[in-house]
């Protein structure tokens, strides 16, 4: 055991690998955080689309979910990396490709969570809001979504954690995230045990932090009885 390898390469692993500041395009958090935020926003629209009464909204949303839920994430990353530049005749940067692939892919899963969350709110809530003259957008915004969001928190956080860990797949197109950074250091130092144990701890600390925050949110959204 020679943990000095961690100390020696700490800056590279954390600044470059986790945060994305360094000579390479990369950073686990720099990819995961915007992917979670944008994926969730797109997911809300997909989820609402799945529940729309108008078929020209509902059917495309359903097809979207079925397509992206049915293919591996690695393949989606490859599509954006190899196929889109050919079709559009422009070269896309690694970061843009990775972020787009994650947002597009995760929105399918998050959309299903949003749909289930909305459907978990009793029908009477919508009827009560409608009966007082609220529009369907107002009903969704002030009555249904706040309740649905609370019910969604456990499933959402699980999906966010999955997404966070899946960002390591971006390394296949040369994106230097935490996993890739550890690989680079390991190629030089040959200390796989120490390096991969260290990044496992870093991943775990981040995801456990997300779990704790979710628990806190869930309590905050529960009216004190």
């Amino acid at each position: 055991m020679e943990f000095s390898v961690i100390v020696k390469n700490f800056d590279f692993l954390i600044a470059q690998g986790l945060l994305g500041f360094g000579n390479f395009v990369g950073g686990t958090l720099r990819l995961a955080v915007p992917a979670i935020v944008l994926g969730f926003v797109l997911g809300i629209f997909i989820g609402l689309g799945r529940l729309a009464r108008r078929p020209w909204i509902r059917i495309p949303a359903t097809i979207y979910v079925e397509i992206f839920r049915g293919v591996p994430l690695v393949m989606v990353i490859f599509w954006f990396w190899f196929i889109i530049p050919v079709l559009l005749r422009v070269a896309l940067p690694e970061y843009g490709v990775a972020l787009t692939a994650f947002v597009v892919f995760e929105a399918a899963y998050l959309g299903e969570i949003v749909r289930a969350g909305i459907q978990s709110v009793p029908r009477g809530q919508m009827e009560a809001a409608t009966a007082t003259g609220l529009s369907s957008a107002q009903t969704m915004l002030y009555v249904i979504l706040p309740q649905a969001l609370k019910n969604m928190i456990p499933a959402l956080v699980t999906q966010f954690i999955v997404l966070f860990k899946d960002t390591s797949l971006a390394s296949i197109i040369g994106y230097v995230d935490l996993t890739k950074a550890a690989q680079i250091v390991n190629n030089r130092e040959i200390r796989p045990f120490e390096l991969y144990l260290f990044i496992a701890v870093v991943y775990w600390l981040c995801t456990y932090g997300m779990s704790l925050y979710a628990r806190h949110l869930e309590q905050r959204f529960t009216p004190s009885v």
Binding site: P122, G124, Q125, E127, A128, A129, T130, A131, T132, G133, L134, S135, V143, P146, Q147, K150, F221, P223
Partner: peptide, 20 residues
């Protein structure tokens, strides 16, 4: 329809208050 519903109060068997 919204203006009309605003003029009509409705009370449900299950109350349907907003719990949040």
């Amino acid at each position: 329809l919204r203006a009309l519903r605003a003029e009509i109060g409705f009370v449900f068997q299950q109350f349907n208050l907003y719990p949040h």
